[in-house]
Amino acid sequence: MAYEWRTQEQSRIDAIHTGDNAKVFNGRERQLQALADEWAKANPEHTNNRYTLTDAINGAAYNGNDRAKGLSGG
């Protein structure tokens, strides 16, 4: 009985976390798209579109995270 309750409770908590993570992801994706749009407005001579810009921004962010992990010894 206690195991079943714990399993149900864990499933409920996991569903909340999944929903929260999706909301955060969607919000950050909108921010990234807005950043790409603003960059494109400020740099009209470039032919990049929203997709290529967001891809470049994501790549730079991942590279920065990897570099930061290396600096901290992690």
Results as ranks from 00 to 15, higher is better:
65 N>C: 08
15 A>K: 09
18 T>V: 05
12 R>H: 05
6 R>H: 08
55 D>K: 14
44 P>M: 03
61 A>H: 14
43 N>E: 04
41 K>Q: 12
19 G>T: 06
50 R>M: 07
70 G>W: 04
4 E>W: 07
41 K>T: 08
15 A>D: 05
10 Q>L: 13
8 Q>H: 10
46 H>D: 10
29 E>P: 00
19 G>D: 09
5 W>E: 11
53 L>V: 07
9 E>S: 13
70 G>C: 00
46 H>Y: 13
50 R>G: 03
21 N>R: 15
32 L>W: 01
55 D>N: 12
63 N>D: 15
74 G>A: 08
38 E>P: 01
45 E>T: 13
17 H>F: 11
3 Y>I: 08
60 A>N: 14
19 G>C: 02
27 G>C: 02
74 G>C: 05
10 Q>E: 08
72 S>H: 07
24 V>S: 04
34 A>C: 01
40 A>I: 15
71 L>P: 01
6 R>F: 07
64 G>E: 09
62 Y>H: 14
55 D>Y: 05
35 L>F: 03
33 Q>G: 02
20 D>H: 09
14 D>P: 00
71 L>M: 12
54 T>R: 04
21 N>I: 05
51 Y>R: 14
8 Q>G: 15
1 M>Q: 09
64 G>F: 10
42 A>W: 04
19 G>H: 11
70 G>V: 02
74 G>D: 12
6 R>W: 07
48 N>Y: 07
39 W>M: 06
66 D>N: 10
54 T>Q: 06
47 T>P: 06
61 A>I: 15
57 I>T: 01
69 K>L: 09
28 R>C: 05
31 Q>P: 00
2 A>P: 10
36 A>M: 03
2 A>S: 10
24 V>I: 15
58 N>I: 11
19 G>V: 00
2 A>L: 10
